[in-house]
């Protein structure tokens, strides 16, 4: 899935108008200019994490989890300092999972530059919607 296709799907699952997605996202700072520039590139897991996290934060008012220490179990969490919080937030909120490297378990990593298939990405989007619904229910 390309960055553009992902952004369009994100807006669709939240029943938002996807016609002018880039302008809206850049204006409200949940997208980066690179998303527009590289809109035809396959979207990596770290960019999915960033966009979902920032969209939920900026558009849906979903606050950050303050203590992200549990995400430290991801061996590659600190391999990208600009991604670390995005990854930690979607991981701890249960939107995106880890990958397990060791056969015996216990060696988790996020696979920052990995590419997921469409089914997996649809699952992330579904969980993002669930996160917003649950937050709404709690407020009510």
């Amino acid at each position: 899935m390309t960055r553009e296709q992902f952004i369009v799907r994100l807006l669709e699952v939240f029943n938002e108008d996807s016609a002018d997605a880039f302008s809206a996202g850049l204006e409200k700072s949940w997208l980066e200019y690179e998303d527009k520039l590289y809109k035809d590139d396959e979207i990596s897991r770290k960019n999915i994490a960033r966009i979902i996290h920032m969209y939920l934060l900026k558009e849906k008012g979903i606050s950050d989890i303050q203590d992200i220490s549990k995400a430290g179990e991801l061996r590659d969490l600190y391999d990208c300092r600009v991604c670390a919080n995005h990854v930690a937030q979607v991981y701890l909120k249960g939107i995106m999972g880890a990958k397990e490297l060791s056969v015996k378990g216990g060696f988790l990593w996020f696979d920052l530059d990995g590419l997921d298939d469409s089914d997996a990405i649809e699952d992330y989007l579904k969980r993002a919607v669930d996160t917003v619904c649950k937050a709404g229910n709690r407020e009510e």
Binding site: I68, Y78, N85
Partner: peptide
Amino acid sequence: NDITFQVGSDGNPGTAAWEGDY
């Protein structure tokens, strides 16, 4: 490495910690 990875954004002050493993 950085003192925090939970940097802020406009309207969000970000988060820091007193102690931690990293």
